[in-house]
Nucleic acid binder design. Structure first.
Length: 419
DNA sequence: TCTGGGGTCCTAGGACCC
DNA sequence: TCTGGGGTCCTAGGACCC
């Protein structure tokens, strides 16, 4: 094997980001809440210690929150994205071969001849010193094994764990329940168990043809990776997206179509901004809406609207979306969420031309408008300019009662220091 | 009262064709 | 009367991830 894989995983990422700007809270249990302040999406290690589960709805843990004086933050994605890109840029100094896997994780490959543990320690110290985010690093021959090594790294005090020699791997896999393996979830684990596969070691030993027949190709690849045979390549170049979605739960249930239209317009504008940044156009729009899934009467529906011409132009996308919305809207329900998904995406540079079309292009004026809006948002913040159809009052808006300031992405929110 | 959001991939099965 | 098999494409739904 010519290279070694490092998985760098930011500890309690969102909570760590909040703590960067609030060192006074260090040592206290801190949680970060999902949109609408609904569920716990990140916990500091103190919050984990007192038994707050990942994903718990806030109202189910109110007793713990009170008893331990837990600090809560609404999620602040502009902040987390910004900190994330700083972390990733630091990692790039250690290796050019890197896959940014998620907002808080990256796989890095280094030559097998290098001292992987020394590199990992250096990465950890550098990220902590320069950015202030603690990371855990798992080291092994494949992505799946590096993920497993990272589980151990999170628990030891050093934050680094290497799983390179055969005996160590075997010993670890024998202790590991299949459900802990990357790619094996809550449904596959019980099914594997019915075939006598309980540990990661069992899975590694299972006949691959049998796995192929009973499960799918991903399970086979996972088993190979446990056997130190790389089967999931590092994806260094971010793929062009296949779909782009924007949806939110409302602060309170919404009945009127006009408010749903405003919300949908706003989400469509946001999704269109993402589409534009990705350099693509959409060939179709999916609109969906749903009432609260925990209460009756329940109603949920979606509709697909193909576009006659590909576009990234927000007013065109909004028009189609709103058409779809009126098709699936039913009077008399209290809605909890609407959303939009753009599908059939293509890079603007790779358009198939339709018959009679000499050269594909977005009309010049449309392009100029989108570019101008993009620049204004970038410079003055995302709320600086909007389409009229998004509404003014935004009664549907998500609750974010406890959001921290946009320290790094909005001038007004920059940290002030008294000296 | 209160239960997130955004993605990807895989498979089975139907429709259709030769 | 009845009967074959292979191939492609598309879609819905399931499962997984962070």
């Amino acid at each position: 094997m010519s290279e070694v894989i490092l998985l760098i995983d930011c500890n309690s990422f969102y909570a760590s980001c909040e703590l960067l700007f609030r060192p006074d809270l260090k040592g206290r249990p801190v949680i970060v809440l999902s949109n609408n302040d609904g569920c716990v999406v990140a916990r500091s290690k103190e919050a984990k210690k007192i038994g707050i589960p990942m994903g718990a709805p806030l109202f189910t843990i109110q007793n713990l929150v009170k008893a331990f004086d837990v600090v809560q933050f609404s999620s602040n994605y502009p902040l987390y994205n910004d900190i994330s890109s700083r972390v990733m840029n630091t990692l790039r100094r250690f290796s050019a071969v890197i896959e940014v896997y998620s907002i808080d994780e990256a796989f890095v490959a280094i030559p097998a001849s290098a001292d992987a543990v020394a590199v990992a320690r250096s990465i950890r110290a550098t990220v902590l010193q320069e950015i202030g985010i603690p990371v855990s690093i798992g080291i092994s021959h494949t992505k799946t094994l590096a993920k497993i090594a990272a589980i151990e790294a999170k628990q030891n005090s050093e934050g680094v764990h290497s799983l390179l020699d055969k005996e160590a791997i075997t010993a670890t896999l024998k202790q590991l329940n299949v459900v802990e393996i990357w790619g094996i979830g809550q449904k596959l684990a019980p099914k594997l168990q019915t075939y006598g596969v309980f540990t990661a070691f069992d899975l590694k030993q299972t006949d691959k043809n049998k796995l192929r027949k009973l499960f799918n190709i991903v399970v086979v690849k996972t088993a190979l990776e446990l056997d130190s045979i790389p089967s999931f390549a590092l994806e260094e170049i971010p793929r062009f997206p296949k779909s782009i979605t924007c949806s939110r739960s409302f602060g309170k249930p919404i009945e009127e179509l006009s408010l749903l239209q405003e919300a949908l317009s706003s989400y469509t504008a946001q999704a269109a901004e993402k589409l534009y940044k990705a350099g693509g156009t959409a060939g179709g729009v999916i609109v969906f809406l749903t009432t609260n899934r925990f209460s009756e009467p329940y109603y949920s529906n979606s509709i697909y609207i193909p576009l006659a011409e590909r576009t990234f132009y927000p007013p065109a996308l909004m028009e189609k979306g709103l058409e779809g919305l009126s098709e699936i809207y039913r009077k008399g329900y209290f809605y909890k969420k609407v959303g939009v998904t753009f599908v059939d995406l293509a890079l603007t540079t790779q358009h198939q031309l339709t018959l009679f079309q000499e050269q594909f292009q977005i009309p010049k004026k449309q392009k100029e408008l989108v570019e101008a809006v993009h620049r204004i948002k970038k410079r003055f913040g995302i709320d600086a300019v909007q389409y009229a159809s998004e509404g003014i009052q935004k009664l549907w808006k998500t609750r974010k009662d406890q959001r921290s300031p946009l320290y790094t992405t909005l001038w007004e929110d920059i940290l002030t220091i008294r000296i």
